[in-house]
Nucleic acid binder design. Structure first.
Lengths: 361, 361
DNA sequence: GTTATATTCGTTAACGTACACGGAATCTAT
DNA sequence: ATAGATTCCGTGTACGTTAACGAATATAAC
């Protein structure tokens, strides 16, 4: 890291031109002779010049605000998961407010592809500098990436990774890896002799990419780590309904002499403890995802053993910061982030909960 | 958050004075009549003006560099723990380099109080704007805080919290809480029937505050959470020697029919697996602290089950950022931080290791 | 040789804050 | 009454970057 700390003015002196010319070279604008351009470029390389982003944004903050759009599923209520990335986004925008940055929110309906497409079109028309969204619809995501590539607008996808026709930027947890983590945690609690159940609680949209990957990672853990003998490992795919009761399916699987390990592949692990209790199943351990209020309260009373945090607030925060870094420094390194698979238990949950002890996300 | 985004110039216009006068009021310098001062203050309040820190630092970066000193134990080698906070410090300084900030490193000898005191005196003479250090010596830490208070220099302590005569700033993990976390993790693996051993591996300096607090938290977990029946819970305090062998003490405690849960209260949990193996003890589970290379390699091969991360790099990083925020915005909120008790296992260790997948500390 | 048209480059005024400098007004002392 | 001190406040420059403006030179067309 070459912290030379010299400015455009010094470059000008060294290259024996004016700062205007150096500026033209740096922002490769037209109107500079090839010979001088070469000379200036040489000086830039030799000195390891790095532009002062702060001064640059100070100048530009008024006229050239960086406009970011975020398009997420419309939330049913204020406790919705999708408010969390938005919180992080707000927090980053607030931090960068002095640098001239603005954010506009757009929403689509998870059950309606068209609403996503319509919003995308609207956003692309309004000349935003960057877009944050989710890759839930494959076809539409591909269409988006194609258009964005033409317009040279960076797109960052949150929450889920998926293969697309163009390379995309993803800020999300590796769900396969998260499943492996869940595998070890549950295995540690239950041991080789127990019965294991992967519970996919499906909503209107059915099984999502994350569910598949988490289950796959979970199974992979047991394939890798357990002496090949037959671990009893089952899967239940259950639609989410008003009167929700897993037990008929569970009962067949359950050996009362064995411990039961339950891995819930989404945020609805809070549904399990009551069902288990009402059916007098007491030897079960649960690992689930996400720090929603219900999950947290069951974690605190011991009904849920582990929660895995995918840091949704941080995803939004990091997306904005990454975009800012890319647009101001042409550094793309922060546009692709593997969110740590954070393990949360009763004793450390307060660090991860909003307004808890933590300062980070 | 009132993002009015108006500047000192707008304030001046509103108050019908010049920007110079507004500046004098803001930085409460002398030379402004009470009546106008009052008027300006009213405008400031009404508009919710917030100074543009970035522009301010741009102006001051050259002449008024923020000078920070960091005083840590001298490292035996490059892999030493104390290089980690320094890495974080460097990283923060790098991030803030455009804002005019500099760091100077000082070292003391952990076995010699006097070296600490001498370095403190040296630092205080050189007119630093802030100091980062560790509170390992009680008397000397008190002396430091007293002097720093006089000179109005903020001090941030890393790694360990301790009661001192003046209120201090601490960026550290709550070790009691970390012990509780270890308790639950080990209890989950071993269950009520096992034997538990807290191992304090002592070096030249004996038992440290963190060791006490971690053990205390660990014991507290079992008091709170386990149905009062007698959990078998023992403590071994063992000096660190070349030929280190815990087993004589362990053997007395060990029931071959029971699982053994070992909680190592410092970073030396890597010493245990070999000792256990050479004595044919195979039913032991280990929870330790810190992501040093040896611990990580045992974590990866399954000899250690959990490691607790206290994010030493982040501690250094956060200290510098907190000091910067305090000195530029008079916001002390980032000078006291409870580091999350991060749970690390084989499957997620790569997120926490330097040059791993993570972007944060 | 004059005018038009590019091409290349220097000058300068911002962005918001800090602070030195000095001007103007009021007050004190002789 | 006038010099000097004091109080109050406005002006101007600087931080590093950007970009509009225009000056200088070269090339082309008549």
């Amino acid at each position: 890291m070459q912290r030379s700390n010299l400015g455009i003015k010094d470059l000008a002196k060294l290259a024996d031109v004016s700062i205007g010319t150096v500026d033209r070279v740096l922002n490769n604008r037209s109107g500079v002779a090839d010979s001088t351009k070469e000379r200036v470029l040489r000086i830039i390389k030799e000195t390891g010049y790095k532009k002062n982003v702060v001064a640059s944004r100070l100048k530009l903050a008024k006229n050239k605000v960086i406009k970011i759009a975020i398009l997420v599923p419309s939330a049913k209520n204020e406790l919705s998961y999708w408010n969390l990335p938005l919180q992080g986004v707000d927090s980053a925008v607030d931090e960068l407010s002095e640098m001239g940055i603005s954010i506009d929110y757009f929403y689509f309906d998870l059950l309606n592809h068209q609403t996503f497409s319509d919003q995308i079109d609207k956003i692309l028309k309004e000349e935003f500098d960057a877009l944050i969204t989710v890759p839930f619809f494959e076809f539409e995501s591909n269409r988006l990436l194609g258009k964005a590539k033409e317009l040279n607008i960076p797109v960052v996808f949150l929450d889920t990774e998926r293969d697309l026709l163009f390379p995309g930027n993803f800020i999300r947890q590796n769900s396969f890896n998260a499943g492996m983590v869940a595998g070890r945690l549950l295995h540690g609690l239950i041991g080789d002799q127990g019965t294991y159940v992967v519970v996919n609680i499906l909503n209107d949209r059915g099984k999502q990419i994350n569910n598949f990957q988490r289950e796959s990672g979970f199974r992979s853990y047991f394939e890798d780590c357990v002496e090949e003998e037959h671990i009893k490992l089952h899967t239940i795919n259950h639609p989410l309904e008003d009167q929700f009761d897993l037990v008929p399916e569970l009962k067949d699987l359950l050996d009362p002499n064995q411990q039961l390990g339950i891995f819930v592949t989404n945020a609805r692990s809070f549904l399990l403890p009551d069902i288990l209790a009402s059916n007098h199943i007491s030897n079960a351990r649960i690992v689930g995802f996400d720090l929603n209020d219900k999950n947290i309260s069951y974690l605190k009373n011991g009904s849920i053993d582990f929660l895995i945090n995918q840091k949704p607030q941080f995803q939004g925060y990091a997306a904005v910061k990454g975009i800012y870094k890319y647009l101001t420094e042409e550094d793309m390194s922060q546009l692709n982030i593997d969110i740590p698979v954070e393990i949360v238990i009763k004793e450390n949950v307060e660090y991860y909960t909003p307004f808890g002890r933590g300062v980070e996300f």
